[in-house]
Design a binder for these strands. Structure first.
Length: 242
DNA sequence: GCGACAG
DNA sequence: ATCTTGTCGC
């Protein structure tokens, strides 16, 4: 699928923050998509100075794999809290570009609007791909949330310093740590909770993210092991001695 | 200055 | 994210 080239990626952290503040006004938090028939999960893994991305598309609500794509590229931006999309965005967009279909909804391993400038990974890529997007993180970046009830489905609002609910802490499995959900683009928090719960097939994380994570890390250490094996079987050169 | 801090 | 073994529990 195509995506909008709204800005360059090789910019400084200061300019990246300015860009987030400029683009956040373009986000939409309404019009929950009528009929969601496919959901994609995207994640990245790292190894040896390279980023490995994976996107796995599932049918919804059946949750059967429809398609998936992988991508690799050189790291070009470090991990800086609040600027995750500048590190993972490029390789994930490579994955979406290689996709043959256009998923109805996207799920990212990170925040949506529950972000210091209201423009987390899910908001950023949702905007560029012009698709409803949900941020589903394992930890919160900012804001505060009470402890949800112990049962699957219970949740508490994730409140920003002003007391506004930017997302929620959602229990996706009985007695298991909650995940932090927040709308990225073109979706409401209510719809996010519904979709995420329906996409969790017995695990803490939604299936699309679990599979994307597995594919990305497999690609990452798969290449690492291939390199190790190669050096073991065909020594670059024999060191004279010490 | 101090504490927080997605992946 | 990544470095890492066993171990408690359904």
């Amino acid at each position: 699928m195509e995506y909008r080239r709204l800005h360059p990626w090789d910019i400084t952290p200061a300019k990246a923050r300015r860009l987030q503040e400029r683009l956040r006004s373009q986000l939409i938090f309404a019009n929950p998509s009528p009929r969601v028939r496919s959901v994609a999960g995207a994640d990245a893994a790292y190894d040896g100075g390279k980023s490995y991305g994976a996107v796995v598309v599932f049918s919804y609500p059946e949750l059967e794999i429809l398609e998936q794509s992988l991508a690799v590229r050189e790291d070009s931006f470090p991990y800086i809290p609040g600027l995750l999309s500048f590190r993972e965005g490029p390789v994930l967009l490579d994955c979406f570009s290689a996709l043959g279909s256009e998923p109805d909804l996207l799920i990212f391993d990170g925040q949506g609007v529950a972000h210091p400038r209201g423009f987390g990974l899910a908001s950023h890529l949702g905007l560029l791909l012009d698709r409803p997007a949900i941020g589903c993180a394992k930890h919160r970046l900012c804001g505060r949330a009470g402890e949800p009830g112990k049962a699957r489905g219970s949740w508490t609002p994730l409140l920003d310093p002003e007391g506004r609910a930017s997302g929620c802490a959602l229990r996706t499995r009985d007695n298991v740590r909650p995940v932090f959900i927040s709308p990225g683009h073109k979706i409401t928090l209510e719809q996010c909770r519904k979709i995420i719960l329906a996409a969790c097939a017995g695990f803490r994380l939604p299936e699309p993210l679990r599979r994307a994570h597995g594919a990305a890390s497999a690609a990452a250490d798969g290449k690492a092991k291939a390199v190790e094996a190669r050096s073991a079987y065909s020594p670059r050169k024999r060191s004279s001695n010490c």
